[in-house]
Write a protein that binds this DNA or RNA. Sequence first.
RNA 1: GGUGAGGUGGCUGAGUGGUCGAAAGCAGAGCUUUGCUAAAGCUCCGUAGGCCUUAAAACCUACCGAGGGUUCGAAUCCCUCCCUCACCGCCA
Length: 424
Amino acid sequence: MLDIRRLRETPETVKTLLAFRGPGYEAMVDEVLAVDSQRRANETRWQHLQAERKNLSKQIGVLRAKKEDSSALEEESKKLGAEMESIQAASAEAEEKQRDLLLSIPNTPHDEIPRGSDASANPVLRTWGDPPKIDQAQDHVAIGTRLGLFDPERAAKISGSGFICYTGQGARLERALISFLLDLHTRDHGYTEMSPPFLVNRATMTGTGQLPKFEADLFGATESDLFLIPTAEVPVTNFHRDEILSVDQLPLKYAAYTPCFRREAGSTGRDTRGLIRMHQFDKVELVKITTPETSAAELESLTADAERVLQLLGLPYRVIELCGGDIGFGACRTYDIEVWAPGHNGWLEVSSCSSFGDYQARRMALRYKGADGKNHLCHTLNGSGTALARLYVALLENGQQPDGSVHLPEILHPYFGAAKLTAA
RNA sequence: GGUGAGGUGGCUGAGUGGUCGAAAGCAGAGCUUUGCUAAAGCUCCGUAGGCCUUAAAACCUACCGAGGGUUCGAAUCCCUCCCUCACCGCCA
């Protein structure tokens, strides 16, 4: 959520930045400002009436204590009450409308991010590693089914399309990856491990920005008004919602493994084959809560922490920066990490590292008490460290051997208990 | 799921219809006294919004789990919901 004061004071700057995302946001800013001035006018009037009424009530109390007649004052107070009620209705409506509008305006992008309307304008910042030379590379579905690592047909039977069931050594590999990633980030990168709930309430989803705008993308448990998390970012960032942290606690760094549940509404038919786009997938997520002064540097180190995963696994990757038209709703700056997948002859997004500035923090009233003794909004960041399913794809496709087996990176051997995947 | 007891400021904890944003204590900040330490005394110390503004203060309003209701007036009375604790039942 953007600061309404910032909108009032520098509307043109906000409009200019929002225009990085595309057209149409100017009208939203104007609308929220109109509602805001209406709301404040109502509120001020109401407050004056209330002050007057409070004063009358006190006088009534004094008269009654002295057993004197107070009926005239009571009558007057009643009249005030009636007028207040009508103002109250208009005021409450304006307030709700303002909040809805504010929650629906995306974050202002950082002014240094690349301009562009879609993913084709995202610049490649750096590339690491060399793609392996593989004759007639198979894709991960062919490799996985041949080696019995997972079973798409039976997963579809028990849940539907868009789900996978890992089996045998395939399931063991998934578990090995989770352990490897959590160990790496907690031992080497200084993150605190978290294992949060997978179902969260409406306030939590609103705090990180999924609600109210993207309810259609979520799986919900409507009877109890709970939602399945689309990423661990949601429960972990909201862990400190409505808190005032001490500045010397910061930055807070959390790593969490969770499954992620996404309806993928609007993407039916895309990437339907295999593990690339599913309604449920595993991910290890990194979350940071920082001060405004350090958030920029923390985004760089967060991205480096995610890149380290691919370096240790020896998987070729590249880092791109998202342009204005491609950046997510709440983010002000985002780096995506894409791993090379020989079977697809293309790059797969395995991590998205973003800074949200104070956008999420304002939504969830996440603050810290600074050295000046005053409260300030924190900055929040998160990045995948990394998505498991696509990492899995990359491991199979990059590690495939002419004899049909798959060689695993050495660092995984102790976690997996073997050096390669072979047919059972 | 049932029954009972509760949810008040960073914490503890008073307050059952009228100058209550809320006693007191603890913690915290500042000052005074004291040769240091210790101790004592005094002062300050919640959040958000509005108004006015260069800004702040002052001032006004809201907030005693959340939302409704009763009343001239609600932390206080009524209703609904949420959460915590205890016991019972059930259960991985």
